[in-house]
Design a protein around this nucleic acid. Sequence first.
DNA 1: ATGCCCTCTATTAGAGGA
Length: 268
Amino acid sequence: MKIATYNVNGVNGRLPVLLRWLEESRPDIVCLQELKAPEERFPAAAIAAAGYDAIWHGQKSWNGVAILSRVGAPVETRRGLPGDPQDTHSRYIEAAVNGLLIGGLYLPNGNPRPGPKFDYKLAWFERLIAHAAELIDSGAPAILAGDFNVMPTERDVYKPERWLDDALFAPEVRAAYFRLLDQGWTDALRALHPDETIYTFWDYFRNAFVRDAGLRIDHLLLSPALADRLLAAEVDSHVRGWEKTSDHAPVWIELGEGKRRRAKRQPG
DNA sequence: ATGCCCTCTATTAGAGGA
């Protein structure tokens, strides 16, 4: 089963690119971020025509997350993280899909730092950590996928020294990311490519893609029940080179079948 | 220290992104 995450940076403006990538890549499940569309302007018909059921949490102008599936309609289990009823941003959606629990998220950018936006990022991260702990405790085969707006290590940013004070690379944000991982989550891309330079985002400015001046900020995290099923994890970097493309590239993993467990072989 | 580029909203500029 192939599961992907893609920050589309405007789902309507990006629709031709999204449909082209869906047709080429044929992921089974997709988490989208930055829809930048109100609830009623999600292009559900075009996505259905491409073979995907979808649930989404839209918002005018900003944010917005969705889960697409061509292996059975997503059954929504949550929209929005618990812990702050005043939070109006559409940044989290969760569903049961084909035997998996999928949490699609768009973690706040947090710049400038310091400031209220950075405080919101840290608070949102704490709510995510609290909810993720419940997912782990449930024992469900779960995936947290999306734009985390965090480069976890120096390997994940083209020029670490320039990003030390940025909200995407600040020590307290990276520490929060590793506190999340320490619950038992596996960073799928890093687990299969421990020493590679891998980016998922390249700025529109300064010819960043051509110079490969990128960041690794889009992540797929696997709960312990899924870690053994991880077969592949890749970035569709070439999509970043398409016309009218997002500044993020799609990221995907392949999971092997895990429903049947082989009986232990008896000696003799 | 700032703009660069891009999207959205809504009128030609402002906000937000990372």
